[in-house]
């Protein structure tokens, strides 16, 4: 039977954020915003959702006097991402 897709990941912006974070050690908010083309508000909301699901950790601090937010994927996030990709592949091969 086809497994249900993870609703946290099955959303364009959250998936884009996770796809970036899966390939890097960590990424800051500005970089994620630039790479996804999202607005700050929407990106903040989606980052909060990913954090609530424990898929990423968020560290807020300052670089000099400028606020600096860094996001990092967790082991749970990596596993969920890998499972999501596998589910997509299964789904696509079943529908060929």
């Amino acid at each position: 039977m086809f497994p249900k897709l993870d609703p946290i990941l099955h959303s364009e912006l959250r998936l884009a954020v996770m796809s970036i974070l899966i390939g890097v050690d960590e990424a800051d908010f500005t970089y994620l915003k630039k790479q996804t083309g999202a607005t700050s508000g929407n990106l903040s909301v989606q980052i909060d959702k990913l954090m609530a699901a424990r898929y990423i950790t968020v560290e807020k601090g300052f670089k000099g006097k400028v606020p600096h937010t860094t996001c990092k994927i967790t082991t749970t996030g990596q596993e969920a991402f890998n499972k999501y990709v596998e589910s997509l592949k299964e789904y696509l091969s079943a529908n060929k």
């Binding site: 959303s11 364009e12 912006l13 998936l15 884009a16 996804t36 083309g37 999202a38 508000g41 929407n42």
Partner: peptide, 9 residues
């Protein structure tokens, strides 16, 4: 790019 959209895919 997503341009802030959050649609289902």
């Amino acid at each position: 790019k997503s341009n802030g959209q959050n649609k289902e895919m």
